Amino acid sequence: MMNIAFCLYKYFPFGGLQRDFLRIALACQARGHHIRVYAMSWEGERPADFEYIQVPTRSHSNHGRNKEYSDWVTHDLQVNPADIVVGFNKMPGLDYYYAADVCYAEKVAQEKGFVYRLTSRYKHYAEFERAVFSNESHAELLMLTGKQIADFKRHYQTAPERFHIVPPGISLDRKYDHRPANIREDFRQRNAIADDELLVLQVGSDFKRKGVDRTLRAIAALPMATKAKTKLIVVGQDKPKRYQALAAKLGILSQVQFYSGRDDIPELMAAADVLMHPAYQESAGIVLIEAIAAGLPVITTETCGYAHHVASADCGVVISEPFEQNQLNEVLARGLDNKKLRETWSEHAKAYADKEDLYSLPERAADLILGGKND
């Protein structure tokens, strides 16, 4: 039995990174290993037999708390060593890093100016990314997409053999053929959504980065008859006030509902007509894979790492970069106005979910972390 330390800043039940962490940790535990988790906070139920250590921090800034967390964990590991240290946020001292985020250096190069590079925030995040991806680090890198790898190689010249692409990983209970019969009708009836109404769904924490404003503008731009029978449900860990104000300004507030988190995402996906995910930035986007497995048509942006699955499946539309709101508006209107097109997209998604490996991330990640051991 090995003692494996998992490091992540915060755990909450509805984050994509958090779900991946939990499933990977459980896969390692199932093979007989002890799991120690370092986190600043944990919301929701914790698995039995996890050794949970809450890391104290006092800084008022995110990067300050991250530095305090890293220093505290480093000291604790010196006193209480682990056989393997796995990180889900960038920090020094990792043996394995699960790369659910984009390349920070690339983001800064594309979006920020010289003055930003003088800030303590920039210096912290740049230093912690370099501690993982430079060739002074020995960390093995669990990657989600080839684009991530290309960005990190460009900025850090990271040795190619350190990168390992893992497949997506969603639970089989999210797949269309694992759900109860009549789930769509039952959900709509319970939630007062008529058969002839159109339900648009967006799922993802961090509304700004996920492009909720783009979705709201696309709903508002629908033809009058279509807009009148369209509802939008947004689910994610964020503060909705700003987006409720935008919906009110656009005249669609009565048609939009926000939820901080829900346990019935499979039911929501079964009841919805389209998943919207017009993200500004997204290293992967596991919700795209969940939608494909559910047979739900997807409209997303090229910036999402998993957008290529939508294109390969031909189960929706990938909006090209540079993004244009008018293109998103037109695509959503076309999809909602054409039931036969949505049915075709849905059948394509189901066929893709049947033939592609969209499920084995936890097992593959555990193989890599444990060095191929399956004890």
Rank of each mutant, 00 (worst) to 15 (best):
A5F: 05
F6E: 06
L8D: 11
F21K: 09
A25E: 07
C28S: 00
C28R: 04
Q29I: 14
R31V: 07
G32C: 05
H33C: 05
V37I: 15
M40L: 11
A48Y: 07
D49T: 15
F50H: 07
E51M: 04
I53F: 14
R58K: 13
G64Q: 03
K67Q: 12
Y69R: 03
V73N: 07
V73D: 09
T74I: 08
L77S: 11
P81E: 00
D83I: 08
I84M: 04
V85M: 05
V86A: 06
D95F: 04
D95S: 02
Y96Q: 03
Y97I: 05
Y98G: 07
A100V: 10
C103N: 08
E106F: 07
K107W: 15
A109K: 04
A109C: 10
Q110V: 11
K112T: 04
G113M: 13
Y116C: 07
Y116F: 15
L118F: 15
T119H: 06
R121I: 14
K123W: 14
S134L: 01
N135G: 10
A139I: 09
L141E: 05
L144F: 14
T145K: 08
K147T: 12
Q157F: 08
P160E: 10
E161K: 04
R162Y: 05
G169D: 02
L172G: 09
L172T: 08
R174M: 13
K175G: 00
K175I: 05
R179I: 15
P180R: 12
P180C: 10
I183L: 15
D186S: 14
D186R: 15
F187M: 07
I193L: 07
D196T: 10
L199A: 00
D206A: 08
F207D: 03
K210T: 07
G211R: 06
D213M: 13
D213I: 04
L216Y: 00
R217T: 02
A218G: 04
A221E: 06
T226Q: 14
K231I: 06
K231R: 15
L232M: 15
V234W: 11
V235T: 09
V235F: 08
P240A: 01
Q244I: 11
L250H: 02
L250D: 02
F258Y: 09
R262D: 07
R262C: 13
D263T: 13
P266E: 00
D273F: 02
M276N: 10
A284C: 04
A293W: 00
T301L: 02
C304S: 10
H309C: 02
H309D: 04
A311L: 09
C315H: 12
C315I: 12
C315T: 08
C315Q: 13
V317W: 02
V318C: 02
E321N: 09
E324S: 13
N326I: 09
L328R: 03
N329G: 01
L332R: 00
A333L: 00
G335T: 06
L341F: 08
A349P: 03
A351K: 14
Y352I: 09
Y352H: 10
L358G: 01
L358F: 12
L358V: 01
Y359W: 08
L361W: 08
R364A: 00
A366H: 07
D367P: 00
G371H: 06
N374D: 13
